[in-house]
Computed example of a mutant assay.
Amino acid sequence: MTQHRKVLSIQAGQPTSDGAGVSLTRVFGGPGVEQFDPFLMLDEFGSDNPDEYIAGFPPHPHRGFETVTYMLEGRMRHEDHMGNVGLLQGGGVQWMTAARGIIHSEMPEQEEGVMRGFQLWLNLPGKTKLSDASYQDIQPENIPRLTTEAGVEVVVIAGRFDDGSVQQMGAVQRPDTEPQYFDFHMPAGSRISPRIPEGHRALLYVYEGTLEIAGQPQAVSASRLVRLSNEGQLQLNSAAGARVLLIAGKPLGEPIVQYGPFVMNTREEIEQALRDFRDDRLTA
């Protein structure tokens, strides 16, 4: 008998704002984030009202984790203290490893139209939290896409996609947390059975349509996050059509101490990060 991954929780995100007043939905993050290990936060942003995004994210610091920004629509310009300048546009990904420290800005490269996408925070293990920062822009044409036999389009951002019939390495591979990050575009009546390593944390975020999960009696509607058990197979169906993020990774099992844009293992390390930022040594 097939053992399916169990649904542990289904939750809606909370409206909030960040940066200089950008409206967004915090899908998860904050107290209790250990249950999402190795992930720390997922934000969804989407608006056609410039007043809700135009102020952007002026220069700000990070330490101890990675940020993954996936744009669906719109244009955002990245600049950082290392001299990197990049344009993030629809279908593209920005993967930034803050590690020891980075100071960067993310500002809209548009004054009208739709700005839509996601930002995921991925933790780093203690052994690499103080390593060198790095940054890469991945243009849409460099992100693998495939269509399964059932007609599901898969955007393979990170890790390796495998459904038993087709395999595809993603644009990014990361050690330690071994993240998988896929975007499924599911037509009405389609199904998909992505293989996820045993022991990996697995999350689903339905951002359009309705999703059915094998073993779960109730369909999952849009703007809902599903947290799954770490073992078993996963079978997804959508009678009406859906767009779904699948995010999975190997838990680090380390203490998580967060203070705003700094995520470390101990309170002492957070205090050191604050001193380093105050003394202009965060990125030294």
Rank of each mutant, 00 (worst) to 15 (best):
T2V: 13
T2E: 07
V7F: 00
I10P: 04
Q11Y: 09
Q14N: 12
T16E: 03
G19A: 14
A20D: 15
A20W: 11
A20R: 14
G21F: 10
V22W: 02
R26W: 01
V27N: 03
G29D: 07
P31A: 14
P31E: 08
G32P: 03
Q35V: 05
F36T: 04
F36L: 00
F39E: 01
L40V: 10
M41Y: 10
L42T: 05
S47R: 09
P50Y: 07
D51F: 01
Y53N: 12
P58D: 14
H62F: 09
H62M: 10
G64T: 04
F65S: 02
E66D: 03
T67K: 09
V68N: 06
T69D: 14
M76Q: 14
M82D: 10
V85M: 13
L88R: 03
G92N: 10
V93M: 12
M96L: 13
A99K: 08
A99F: 03
S105C: 10
M107H: 15
M107E: 06
P108E: 10
Q110Y: 04
E111W: 13
E112I: 00
V114Q: 14
V114W: 13
M115L: 15
R116K: 15
F118Y: 09
Q119V: 07
L120I: 00
W121P: 01
L130V: 09
S134K: 15
Y135N: 07
I138G: 02
P140R: 08
N142W: 01
P144E: 14
R145T: 04
R145S: 07
T147S: 07
T147C: 08
T147H: 09
T148G: 04
E149Y: 12
A150C: 04
A150T: 08
E153C: 05
I157R: 09
I157P: 01
A158W: 06
R160P: 00
F161D: 12
F161N: 03
D162P: 06
D163I: 08
G164F: 12
Q168E: 12
R174L: 03
D176Q: 11
T177E: 03
D183H: 05
F184Y: 06
H185G: 02
H185P: 00
H185T: 05
A188T: 01
G189Q: 12
S190M: 07
I192K: 01
S193D: 09
E198N: 02
A202Q: 13
A202V: 15
L204Y: 07
Y205W: 14
G209K: 00
L211K: 11
A214W: 05
A214G: 01
Q216E: 03
Q218G: 11
V220L: 11
V220N: 08
S221K: 05
R224Q: 10
S229N: 01
Q233N: 14
Q235M: 02
L236F: 13
N237K: 10
S238N: 11
A242V: 05
I247Q: 07
P251M: 02
P251K: 11
E254S: 10
Y259D: 08
F262V: 02
N265S: 07
N265Y: 13
N265M: 04
L274T: 01
R275L: 10
R278Q: 15
R278F: 13
D279P: 01
R281S: 15
R281I: 07
L282N: 06
